[in-house]
Amino acid sequence: MEVQALLITFREALEALLIVGIITSYLKRIDQSRYVKYVWLGAGLAVFASAIVALLFQVVLTGFSTMASEMYLKVSIIFISSILLTQMVFWMAEHSKDIKSSMEGKMSKYVSKGDVFGMVMHSFLVVLREGVETVFFFAAITGGNIGAAVQGWGAITGLTIAAIVSYTFFKGTMRVPLKTFFKVTGAFIILIAAGLLVQGVSMLQDLKIIGSVMPHVYDITWFMPEHPIDHEHFVRDTGHEPIISGDVGIFLKALFGYSSMPSLEEVLAYVGYFVVIYLLVKTRYGAKEGKKEKSEKNEQVLEQQVM
């Protein structure tokens, strides 16, 4: 159980720290380090909020009719995260348009209170999402005794390793030219946001809230299952191992929305997301003028996209 707890906390913490790390190193690089503490405050509050969520599901919502409520909570968090990350992409695109490619290190940039609030919200939500996932995974590995998993050595070790890995990683990025940093992190965030959108669509389909005209476009479970359970089933049904483990699959699923057997809607939403974001960023920030008055419209379109 401790090894499982270690792996869970490592994976969930790493996912959260990658986003929080992007936000904080971003703030550092635009010379706004004083706001970093608020971002960490947001992350800290989210840990606290995760504990409240755990308590709510463990002790209060225990009836048959309320058991599904954890699913609705997850779907809501996923869509809100996706919208906020998309908004962050636009924000970064606007701020990065006048960076010269030769510039390295830091640049001074004004950030408004709204921007800071947005970043704090991002870190809060991403940590909350991973925190809630951790709670449900802990419930699964301990047979419901979540407290036991939190108190063991596995959880704290996983968290420590994740912290070391992401610290080392972001320490390294400080030497990368600013333009490259913007491009790489921007692309990374778009990938995550697209992944979240697809996971949201997938969950709504699993819950049968929305339908599908083609539940499986393809099935590459033989290559890499999206979940350890799918991995086990594949081994049981066929007698041989998939090429890549389901443990890698679930990591890629959580981070980038990987699916080994997506529905047609998932595929279209995924590809469509990149097309829409590319066109909007190009139209909005590629052209020099007439960007302001259209911003509201863009946001409306984005909301529709995510709904």
């Binding site: 499982q4 699964a140 590995i141 443990d247 990591f251």
Partner: peptide
């Protein structure tokens, strides 16, 4: 980390428990 210790199955979190 992902190759050394295979995780045993967790309950699937997706889908309506009811």
């Amino acid at each position: 980390i992902f190759t050394s210790a295979p995780m045993s199955s967790f309950a699937y979190s997706y889908g309506d428990p009811n």
